[in-house]
Computed example of a mutant assay.
Amino acid sequence: MTLLAGKNAIVYGGGGRIGTAVASAFAEEGARVFLAGRTRARLEEVASRIRAAGGSAEVAEVDALDARSVDDHADAVAAEGGLDISFNLITHGDVQGTPLIDMELADYERPVLTAVRTQFLTARAAARHMVKQRSGVLLFFGGAGEPVREFSVGGLQVAFHALEAMRRQLAAELGPHGVRAVTLRTGGIPETLPAGFPGREELEENIAGKTMLGRAATLADVGAVAAFVASDRARTMTASTVNVSCGALVD
């Protein structure tokens, strides 16, 4: 029996590296995956791979920063048998590698404003349907962490802290309706770093060096954990953070 058989899952940013891994894991566990994003060609590529592996995937162009676009898509998915899982993995436009004292205000605040806006819109759209069916899971990614000394991350940690505050409030308000809210947190995923990223090799070594297992989490690791957390086997988990860091983050 697959973990997510009969479930409908929206993955925003389904064409990105993490979104692809999560969507593939969801489909492998039996979910019908709805890939949402702004670049249809990339989404279709991911959907084709999922279908070739025997999974079910649908594609839709959705602007996850636009309320009407998000609401209309969520309504359409819910009409297809319910909306069980919502995971927003769009990029936040953060600038990294630049010290705060050298950073422009726009670059600092962009990830904060983007993260809060998109997560609010997608969580709200999904939760409205989940409350009616008295079940569902809102997944968050990132998690609030300690200040990073070795590398300048701009407004990224501020964005993560804001999302954690939102997740806690959603968990409290939606819990009585059977809806869960959980954050997946890693210590960094080297596979997500683009080629030519400044200091990439040093950063990769730093990520792995901080773990207790001597290796960093992979995209496949994140997908597998996300599928479990989204399943009914994790039905007791809400208002919590799941550590997918190979021991880099100590709770």
Rank of each mutant, 00 (worst) to 15 (best):
M1L: 12
A9F: 05
I10M: 11
R17V: 10
A23V: 04
A27F: 05
E28S: 14
F34W: 13
E45K: 15
G54P: 05
E58R: 14
V62F: 01
D63N: 13
L65N: 09
R68I: 07
H73I: 04
A76Y: 04
A76M: 10
G81E: 08
L83V: 09
F87Y: 13
N88A: 09
G93I: 04
L100R: 09
I101W: 15
M103H: 08
A106V: 13
D107P: 05
R110I: 05
V112F: 07
V112P: 00
V112I: 15
T114V: 13
T122E: 05
R124F: 06
A127P: 03
R128T: 10
V131A: 09
K132E: 14
S135P: 06
L138D: 01
F141E: 02
G142N: 03
E146N: 14
F151V: 10
G155R: 02
E164P: 04
A165K: 10
M166H: 12
H177P: 03
T183A: 14
T186D: 01
T186W: 00
E191H: 06
T192N: 05
T192Y: 04
E202F: 11
L203Y: 03
E204Y: 05
A208Y: 04
L213P: 06
A216R: 00
L219E: 08
V222W: 00
G223D: 00
V225F: 00
V229Y: 01
D232Q: 11
A234G: 08
T236C: 15
N243H: 12
V250Q: 14
D251A: 15
